[in-house]
Design a protein around this nucleic acid. Structure first.
Lengths: 214, 214
DNA sequence: GTTTTTACTAACCATTTGGTTAATCTGATC
DNA sequence: GATCAGATTAACCAAATGGTTAGTAAAAAC
C-alpha cells in the first residue's frame, strides 16, 4: 500500500497519513472481530506498518478501540436523532425514518453487529458512552405518537412498543443476514434487493397497522 | 458447589456428573463470551475442577464449544420448526408462534445473542451446522401466507417480508436489551414486563396490518 | 552545521492461554 | 489385599499476544 517515489524516496500513502491508515485498518478489523477478537498484529499488517506504530499513535489496544467505537457512535447517533426529530407528520416521518435509516445501514452493514456485540459484551461502559455522546431520548417521537392517538389518527398503542417494532424491522435483518441468505437461498445481490424492498414495505406495514379504520 | 458428606467424605455434585457440570459451565461462559472470548480456565473455575479435565472430557476448546453450540441449536431449531408448522389458521398461528417463541426466548435470553454472534463470526461453519441439523425451510408457513392472499383473507404482501417482520419484532428487543433499558429507564423487571406485553402486542400489530379491510 | 524532534523499526519481554504429561487417587474386580 | 481402569491433579510447555525499548533515519529548529 506504500510506494516510493523516484525522486525523493518519500513514502506516498495514497493520500493518507499513517495515523489515518491505522485507524482505517483498526476499523476494518474491530468491526468484524470486536475488541476481544481483534489482533494488534493483524491491524498492523492490514495497515502495512510495524506493530509498534499502533502504540506510538494510540497508546493501547483499548484506547485504539475506543477511538473506533466512538467514531461508529458519532456516525450513528446523530443520524438516529436527526431522523427521529425531523419535523414531519407521523406517517410521513415513519416513511422518512425507515427509508433513510435503512439507507444508512446499507452503507454501514457492519454497524448493527458491531454495536450490539460491544453493548452486550460491556453494557456499563458502553451505556456511559451512549449517555455522554447524545441523549438518545426518544421524547419527541413518543409524544408525536401519543398526539396522533389523541387526535384519533391512529389506534391506541404503547408508543414505545411501536417504536421498537419499527426499529426491530429495520435493523434485525442485517443481524440475521447469513441466516436469511441461507434459508431463502439468496445471493449478496438478492439480499440487498430484499432490503431495498423493505424501505417501502416496512412503512406500509406499520401505517397499515396503526391507521384508524373508518 | 461441591459438598463433603460427613459419612463417606465423597463429593456430592448436586446430582451432576463431572462431565455434565463441565458442560453447564461451558454453556455459562460461552453463551456470554462466545468462542473467542471464553477462557478455558474460567470454565474450569466455574465448574470447580482442574483445567485438564476439560480436555479429558472434550479434547479441545473447539470441540467443547461445538457441543455447546449444537446443544443451543437443538434447543432452538426444533422449536421454531414446530411453531412454524403447527396446524392452525394463519391468524391463530401468528398468535401462537409469537407467544410461544417469546416465552422460549424469555427462558433462554442468551440464545439470540449467542447464535447471532457465532453466525456472524463464522457464517460458513455455522450455516453448515444449520443445514445439517434441521432444514429450516419455511415452506409451509410461506405457502400458508400465499394461500391467505389468494383467498383474500389478507392483503397482498411478500410472504418472506412478513415472516422476517414477525421474527424481527420477536428477537430484536432481546439483542437491544441494554439499550432499551437505558433509553426507557427500565429495570430488569420493567424490561421483562415490556417483553411480556409484546406477546399480545406483536400479533395484534401484524394482524391489524395484513387483515383485509372490507 | 549542529541539535532536537518526529516517525519508524527490529528485537525483546512478560503474561496469557490452550493444551500435554506424568504422577496420584479412588473405587471396583479378582 | 493386590491389580487395574478410570478420574483427577499439579506442573509444565509452546505459541500467541499486548506492550516496551533502544536505536535509526530524516526532517525541523536553532
Amino acid at each position: 500500500m506504500t510506494v516510493k517515489t523516484g525522486k525523493t524516496g518519500k513514502n506516498i500513502n495514497l493520500d493518507k497519513t499513517t495515523e489515518q491508515r491505522i485507524l482505517q485498518s483498526a476499523k476494518n478489523i474491530f468491526h468484524r472481530k470486536g475488541l476481544g477478537g481483534a489482533r494488534m498484529q493483524e491491524i498492523a499488517d492490514d495497515a502495512g506498518i510495524n506493530k509498534a506504530m499502533l502504540h506510538y499513535y494510540f497508546r493501547s489496544k483499548e484506547k485504539m478501540f475506543n477511538a473506533v467505537f466512538e467514531d461508529a457512535l458519532n456516525k450513528f447517533l446523530p443520524k438516529v436523532k436527526e431522523l427521529l426529530n425531523v419535523e414531519l407528520p407521523l406517517f410521513r416521518k415513519i416513511e422518512y425514518f425507515v427509508e433513510n435509516y435503512i439507507s444508512h445501514l446499507l452503507e454501514n452493514t457492519y454497524l448493527p453487529f458491531f454495536i450490539i456485540y460491544e453493548i452486550n459484551q460491556n453494557p456499563d461502559k458502553i451505556s456511559k458512552l451512549l449517555l455522554n455522546k447524545a441523549d438518545l431520548s426518544p421524547g419527541i417521537f413518543i409524544k408525536q405518537i401519543s398526539n396522533a392517538i389523541e387526535k384519533k389518527i391512529i389506534d391506541r398503542i404503547d408508543p414505545r412498543q411501536l417504536m421498537i417494532n419499527m426499529i426491530s424491522m429495520c435493523i434485525f435483518p442485517f443481524l440475521w443476514k447469513p441466516i436469511i441468505m441461507k434459508v431463502f437461498g439468496m445471493s449478496e445481490k438478492g439480499f440487498k434487493d430484499f432490503i431495498e424492498l423493505r424501505k417501502k414495505e416496512i412503512p406500509r406495514f406499520i401505517i397499515n397497522s396503526i391507521k384508524k379504520k373508518k
